[in-house]
Design a protein around this nucleic acid. Structure first.
Lengths: 249, 249
DNA sequence: TAGATCGGGCGCACACTGTACGCAAGTGCG
DNA sequence: CGCACTTGCGTACAGTGTGCGCCCGATCTA
């Protein structure tokens, strides 16, 4: 359609732009896909949109990526690459180290909320190198704390399962709000009302609901997350050589 | 296209089948959607297929259901309705009661593996009546064990988060295998090889991988799940009046 | 009994999706 | 120089969710 597609009348008329464009590499594609996913969620990522964003046609992407599925798998692992390594200090203080790592994971998931939904479909993105590295780090912390390798593995799986499960709900809410273009505070009222109506028939649930009165929802989620994590670490402590004292709540 | 669509030559030729068909109710639609999801996963559910399965056109469904999203939300809650209520015995023995409920939840998710992926997207299916009832049950168990309502809420959220997180990975694998039409044992070899290659650069992860040698993958997942759960319950125990002795591993 | 009202089912249409295929143009090696 | 090979792209196809308006059958009213 555009003039670019027609044969130019003479060779000289065609500007020799050749490699003016960054030439569309796999890393480039993945990076842009992540940006799209962050801003518009999983539904916002289509091959055509992604291509357009890169100044390319949709089908060009398939030279560098086999599938949309594979692209997403790559995006997931790339995002996990954002997790900074744990440092020496974490090896000395297992409880603090694990807590810090878990919090970083939570923040990472909330920063890229589509990750939760996507890795529930993809499943075995667990084998990507960056995810593997995160496991290795925490494994090392537990081993340094005196766990056998089996216990360390059990502890890591338990903690990671908790982090993913706890953050999934938060992430889904974040995405739903974003897709509606709403702010958290705008929806807080409607959400609260719905929650109250849902909980009312159930006495304990309703009581629990009431105990949240007047608190900010983001705040609730965060303290619930850290308190639950400490509970789990209390349970894990006896597996270590130097069980820290329980968290004390 | 078919003869049914043409005006019949005379009124008498048209059989008066009227309400021979069960008349397409919301419950009926949701039930059939669940069957489709179970057999073919999330990608197997399209409005056209669902309509065809019910002997109806795709757009007819929209008389009973606002969206595909709403339909899925209904399906999720309907599935959670399969959770059987906890009985009196669970109130007397909190640890056993919570363990049984958690196991039932795991089995339910594995029976309908699409649930994990879907509720990560939908998010606030948590407000459906059946999910709410499940929360209420476990909440009651913890309260009966002497927890304050806040502690009970914390405990429930922690346990549920763990169950969801731990089962998500398993469910995703189940679906992926099913969509390929493969059996678990057929893939075990390939998967194992991939896992070994992925773990090799990381010493602790590789050691952990080795400790699984020769065990059945379904078995690994199940014992990991229950052991992790017991760890968490060890951490939760001090919140109760009558802390059961730790699980003892 | 005749007519009005209404709700549910359906065909059509639209915008959009992922991706297979084959062509054209540029790059690097002989 | 010629030739293989890579890379981008236009087209096409099957399939998606869903808005719109028609029509038919059932029920209610006069």
């Amino acid at each position: 359609m555009s003039a670019k597609n027609e044969h130019p009348p003479t060779v000289w008329a065609r500007e020799t732009q050749q490699r003016a464009r960054p030439t569309l590499s796999r890393a480039h594609i993945v990076a842009e896909a992540i940006r799209l996913l962050d801003t518009d969620g999983i539904e916002g990522l289509s091959m055509r949109r992604l291509g357009a964003q890169l100044g390319a046609g949709a089908t060009s992407l398939y030279r560098h990526v086999a599938n949309k599925d594979e692209l997403i798998e790559l995006a997931v692992d790339a995002v996990y690459g954002e997790l900074s390594l744990s440092d020496r200090a974490d090896l000395a203080d297992w409880r603090g180290g694990v807590t810090r790592t878990a919090n970083r994971m939570r923040e990472l998931i909330l920063r890229h909320p589509w990750i939760a939904a996507v890795s529930a479909e993809t499943g075995l993105s667990y084998l990507g190198p960056n995810v593997m590295r995160a496991c290795e780090d925490v494994l090392a912390i537990f081993v340094a704390a005196g766990c056998t390798i089996e216990d360390a593995d059990l502890a890591v799986n338990t903690v990671f399962a908790y982090v993913i499960g706890a953050t999934t709900g938060e992430a889904a809410l974040t995405m739903k709000l974003a897709s509606r273009g709403l702010d958290v505070s705008e929806w807080a009222d409607g959400l609260r009302a719905a929650a109250e109506r849902a909980a009312r028939p159930y006495p304990h649930a309703y009581q629990a609901y009431l105990s949240y009165a007047g608190r900010e929802s983001r705040d609730i989620a965060e303290t619930q997350f850290t308190q639950g994590l400490q509970l789990i670490l209390d349970g894990v402590a006896p597996l270590t050589d130097h069980p820290s004292p329980p968290s004390g709540r």
